[in-house]
């Protein structure tokens, strides 16, 4: 059909940060569906809690210390994470490189402590449903932790190559910051469910 020019877009930028970029929305979409997965797993756990009056099913209490250390590490990591974000918005290469290295290390550190969290649960997954559920919750979050740390490391390497000098890459750094917030945020309720809810019973 016939066309008439009505709008000139030649001056538009080629990338944008945060909600302006489609990647940010895609990340938000995946957070929504993964968050739903967390909520349902937590819901299943609480459903079983309400069903059995003697919840914990005579299992010993979990040792909360490794989990508490992970929690503190994750919360502390939010500060450099957001400093990194401001530099990413400014497309400043040097501080972004430093920030990415720091965030990779701050991703690995809780993973190392996480290794000690599983034995600290003081129960196996196949002992009873209580054991199953806390292993599932911890496993679910560990999967997120591993994938995001892997992603952060790959992006860090990328930022040290010539591919880093692009608005898109700085946008990716911003989205990585955004996703790390999600990994930290989802941990808090799971931490409370795993270590503190059983202490109520």
């Amino acid at each position: 059909m016939n066309q008439r020019p009505a709008l000139d877009l030649s001056g538009l930028p080629t990338f944008g940060h945060g909600p302006r970029s489609p990647t940010w929305w895609g990340t938000l979409g995946f957070m929504a569906l993964e968050g739903m997965g967390f909520a349902l797993a937590a819901g299943a756990y609480l459903y079983l809690v309400t069903l059995w009056p003697n919840w914990r099913l005579s299992a010993p209490q979990p040792n909360h210390w490794p989990g508490t250390i992970v929690t503190l590490l994750l919360i502390a990591s939010l500060v450099p994470n957001h400093i990194l974000n401001t530099y990413a918005k400014r497309c400043a290469m040097r501080p972004v490189r430093i920030g990415m290295v720091v965030m990779s290390l701050l991703g690995l550190a809780p993973l190392v402590v996480r290794w000690f969290e599983f034995p600290a649960l003081n129960i196996y997954w196949d002992t009873n449903a209580y054991g199953s559920m806390i292993w599932v919750l911890l496993g679910l979050h560990t999967t997120h932790l591993i994938t995001d740390v892997g992603d952060t490391i790959v992006l860090t390497v990328l930022m040290f190559t010539h591919h880093g000098y692009s608005g898109r890459r700085f946008g990716d750094v911003g989205d990585n910051v955004f996703y790390w917030d999600f990994v930290v945020l989802t941990w808090i309720p799971i931490y409370l469910l795993i270590y503190w809810l059983p202490r109520l019973g």
């Binding site: 459903y47 059995w52 099913l57 196949d126 449903a129 054991g131 199953s132 599932v136």
Partner: peptide, 23 residues
């Protein structure tokens, strides 16, 4: 959850060990 119950012996849907089928 189903494959965990079947494959690694979790008890999420096993009422004998604190799970529940209606879940």
């Amino acid at each position: 959850f189903l494959i965990l119950d079947r494959l690694v012996g979790t008890h999420i849907f096993n009422p004998a060990e604190g799970g529940d089928v209606l879940l």
